[in-house]
Design a protein around this nucleic acid. Structure first.
Lengths: 249, 249
DNA sequence: ATAGTAGTTAATGTCAGACATTTTGCAAGG
DNA sequence: CCTTGCAAAATGTCTGACATTAACTACTAT
């Protein structure tokens, strides 16, 4: 079941948790199925029961598995996973083939949330927020089209995270964690054409400018435009920009 | 430091974590201060080091404390707390006097997020979602003005949670956890006038109707109206309904 | 006198083994 | 057929020892 998994040289408790979590996140283990017993995991990875228990505790804390005394551990439904837990973001990041449902769901969330966040950012951003935005944008610009995909993605993450930070709300700020796996997935699945990159950069610039000039509505529209660009790069169907939706009776 | 805390009769590991967490969440321990050592906690609560370590692991997982080998545990800044962790919601619920910053921040988040969620719900709700909404609304109606504040609050939570569920998005659904502490706080701090209750009920009904009739914009406005009602009940400054915000140049 | 370094102390992290508790399945008996 | 009781298997807990890390201290060399 977990035969082809390898524990990194480090081998610490978090490393073991990451290995086990990715086995679930990549969809290898169906929901509702039994997770291996503690003893088997001890043998399989040659670690103490203590480490195994700590790793399993993390998996339970993030809702990936459900543990009950005397019964064992079971893989939980995807609806029970705590996608907003920072641990989950770490595990999802660098996952070769994440469950496609997760990519879609996270993107759909960002599409509905980030315009609002950008609007708040335009109302609340201070000097340091703008400095972060500018630094991230400069990084994106300088790494565009140079083959430094990894660095470009990191600056991309930093840019969007700066927007969440600029909202100056404790809850929105937590959600910056979702960005890394979402943006990394974008790199893996799309080969950023040069023209696409140029266009994406320009859309990011407009978000930054709207926030700097304290124009909430412009920031909202610009953030939406960035995400529509992302949708096409991800191969998702771009929504038809239904801005002028009629007010119902 | 933790002298007046009592461990419930149950005394399980989660109970200990809850006691310690609430000591932090209520603001008794300043950010950056040293958290008691494991040994001291063992003596103070007369439990094994194992339980203490499990409890502390939960506190670390939710970002309440930061642990480092050889150094000890420190209380983290409020900005590091994982407010979206279900454990956090449990701990916040039933807390007599939560940190007022948290109440404000969570309310501000809901004000900016729930209209969007309601809009999504109006687009995606199915039969079961509507059934949940109706059941929760009926519960609210039947417990209004009867002195059954606790039950009314539970139905209130169920109503808003049903809206998040109806969005049919994995990420938004997670955030239903924020509702319970937010709504419980509302009960503690306001003595729901009869007129206020009637008004609140009517505003909830409009949200439900808009979702049922698949009117996204109406749902958005109705959700906002509910939260503005909540703001006045909480004693927060109601925002001046800036709907017709001019589009900046 | 100061910078660097080795040793000491104190805290968390890990290991190993035994025992407690809960769940499940089976099997005998009503 | 249902119930009761027992046994097996899994997770939960306790205990004591040791490992590892970080901060402090005293000492030494420049």
């Amino acid at each position: 079941m977990l035969d082809d998994l390898v524990l990194p040289a480090d081998g610490g408790a978090p490393a073991l948790a990451a290995v086990l979590a990715r086995a679930i996140l990549s969809g290898q283990l169906p929901a509702g199925s039994d997770f291996p017993r503690e003893k088997d995991l001890c043998d399989r990875f040659a670690v103490s029961r203590n480490r195994v228990r700590n790793a399993l505790a993390s998996l339970a804390a993030t809702g990936l598995v459900e543990r009950t005394a005397g019964r064992g551990s079971r893989v939980r439904e995807i609806t029970g996973w705590h996608l907003l837990d920072p641990l989950m973001s770490d595990w999802l990041t660098g996952l070769a083939r994440p469950d496609p449902r997760l990519v879609r769901e996270i993107y759909a969330f960002r599409l509905s949330a980030e315009p609002q966040v950008a609007e708040l950012a335009a109302l609340a951003a201070d000097g340091r927020d703008l400095a972060r935005l500018e630094a991230a944008f400069a990084g994106m610009r300088d790494t565009a089209g140079t083959g430094m995909h990894q660095q470009h993605a990191e600056h991309d993450v930093a840019f969007h995270d700066a927007v969440y930070q600029a909202s100056h709300n404790l809850v929105w700020r937590q959600m910056g964690h979702l960005l890394r796996p979402s943006i990394i997935a974008l790199i893996q699945h799309s080969q950023h054409q040069a023209a696409s990159l140029e266009d994406s950069l320009e859309r990011h610039r407009r978000v930054m400018e709207a926030i700097r000039l304290r124009q909430p509505q412009a920031a909202r529209r610009a953030a939406r435009a960035v995400l529509e660009r992302t949708a096409t790069d991800l191969g998702l169907i771009p929504t038809p920009t239904s801005h002028t939706e009629g007010h119902p009776a």
